[in-house]
């Protein structure tokens, strides 16, 4: 067996770590629940808006102005995912990999420039 190889045991440790973390958080929350007092009054349980009576709730339609950014983000994030195996295998493939990726990312950059010039990256 080659010495330099990750095995399933490594992932097992990560999973165990996650569960230990969850247990730690659960323990803290439980301990706080046991220790902390509870004396709710109607005023205490209102939504905090600096002492003013809240008008309506926050679950209404709103316009996140950056939704175009979110669309672009998905495109570029997927691109970054494609770039990861490329970066690892880069030394084996060499110059060909560079040219190939230049074309792929060049297209995406052209898209970014297009969005930029159409003022998608602009707050009106």
């Amino acid at each position: 067996m080659p010495a330099d190889q990750s095995s399933d045991f490594s992932y097992l440790a990560v999973v165990v770590f996650t569960f230990v973390g969850i247990a730690f958080i659960a323990f803290n929350l439980l301990l706080a629940r046991l220790l902390s007092p509870s004396a709710p009054t109607p005023e205490k349980l209102t939504t905090y808006e600096c002492g003013v009576q809240p008008i309506g709730d926050a679950w209404r339609q709103f316009n996140p102005r950056y939704y175009l950014f979110a669309l672009l983000f998905v495109v570029f994030d997927v691109e970054a995912v494609f770039l990861y195996p490329w970066a690892v295998a880069f030394r084996q493939v060499g110059a060909f990999a560079v040219a190939e990726m230049l074309i792929f990312v060049g297209l995406l950059i052209a898209g970014l420039i297009f969005a930029w010039r159409r003022e998608a990256l602009q707050w009106e």
Binding site: L31, A32, R33, L35, S36, P37, S38, A39, P40, K44, L45, T46, T47, Y48, P54, D57
Partner: peptide
């Protein structure tokens, strides 16, 4: 740990 955990109605 000893603070009241206030959970608003809404």
């Amino acid at each position: 740990f000893f603070k009241e955990d206030i959970q608003p109605r809404a």
